[in-house]
Design a protein around this nucleic acid. Structure first.
Lengths: 166, 166
DNA sequence: GACGAATAGTTCAAGCGTCAAGTAATTTGG
DNA sequence: CCAAATTACTTGACGCTTGAACTATTCGTC
């Protein structure tokens, strides 16, 4: 369906260069974010992201399936991580009163504290590596390009937090 | 060093939005590339990338340490992957004649065939998801932004293939 | 309202990546 | 020219992700 060996339409030299640089970015940036958070806060980026999403939302509560969408993760991965974070006391699981199948993850006070402890260092790295090297116009162009690409990856925008206005 | 809890300089609303979309991209795009290659060619994206780098270079040979740089991977990860790919007959290891410590990975005929088989489908997906949604100016802006960010992540540009001209 | 399909989440085995420790060869500096 | 430091790579233990299989609940519809 996606592959059509008869008509590969190779990339031009410029496209190829742009793509290879994107691959380098895609590979290295997550590793750096992980390393900083792990070192300074004892959290993987994914764990931080989970806690951070919870901290943004009223009641500090989300259904696991929604949380999986927001963090672009499989339910299986999220289930494991939530179990570990619960074991560390950073969140707890509650049955969803509206749906017997569902669970809610609720941030605990310790979880809130962990996010608040980790956030400044994380934001500093994001600034240093991504936001500050670009001037406002460049950042806005980057964002526009990302939005177009995400439109292909995620047509329903199911992974986009509804509490963020465009 | 990177974290300064006294002065977090939070992101503005726009910066935050741009960053969260970048995170969504960083998470979902690699998963999609992996899925397509695994399904259509039985290779992970990383395996494909390794074979692809070898196929670009004269002699289809690279030292493992250089290959690790080019693929932004740890030597340990590469060592494991090379062992597996060697087991599948897609490449072989040779001692480096110039340095007794070093090994070279050499693409086999089967490895070349595997890349050539996988490439069209992979390129098609890259086009569909990244290249084609953007017009040439947008792609070039995206590339420029990525280059600036990479300048922070990888100041020596050690991960950049030397056979690509800017 | 009952039965099949879909949804929500969990679990387990298998595979992969990471980090620390180890081997071997080479370079450096005294 | 030798010892210490560095470089190149490998290995093994551990933890995490994946995908398939499973349970439980709810939805759809006739």
């Amino acid at each position: 369906m996606t592959a059509d060996p008869e008509d590969p339409r190779w990339l031009t030299a410029e496209q190829r260069l742009a793509w290879l640089d994107m691959v380098r970015l895609l590979t290295r940036l997550p590793a750096i974010l992980d390393a900083q958070l792990e070192r300074d806060a004892g959290l993987s980026f994914f764990e931080y992201h989970v806690l951070s999403m919870l901290s943004e939302v009223p009641g500090h509560t989300l259904r696991l399936s929604r949380l999986a969408q927001l963090t672009s993760s499989s339910l299986s991965r999220l289930s494991n991580v939530v179990k570990r974070l619960e074991g560390r006391g950073l969140l707890r699981r509650e049955p969803d009163p509206d749906d017997g199948r569902a669970s809610r993850a609720v941030l605990t006070a310790a979880g809130t504290a962990a996010v608040e402890l980790a956030a400044p260092g994380h934001v500093t790295v994001v600034r240093e590596l991504v936001v500050d090297p670009l001037d406002p116009a460049q950042l806005s162009q980057l964002h526009a390009a990302h939005e177009r690409i995400l439109g292909r990856l995620d047509p329903a925008s199911a992974t986009r937090p509804e509490w963020l206005e465009t």
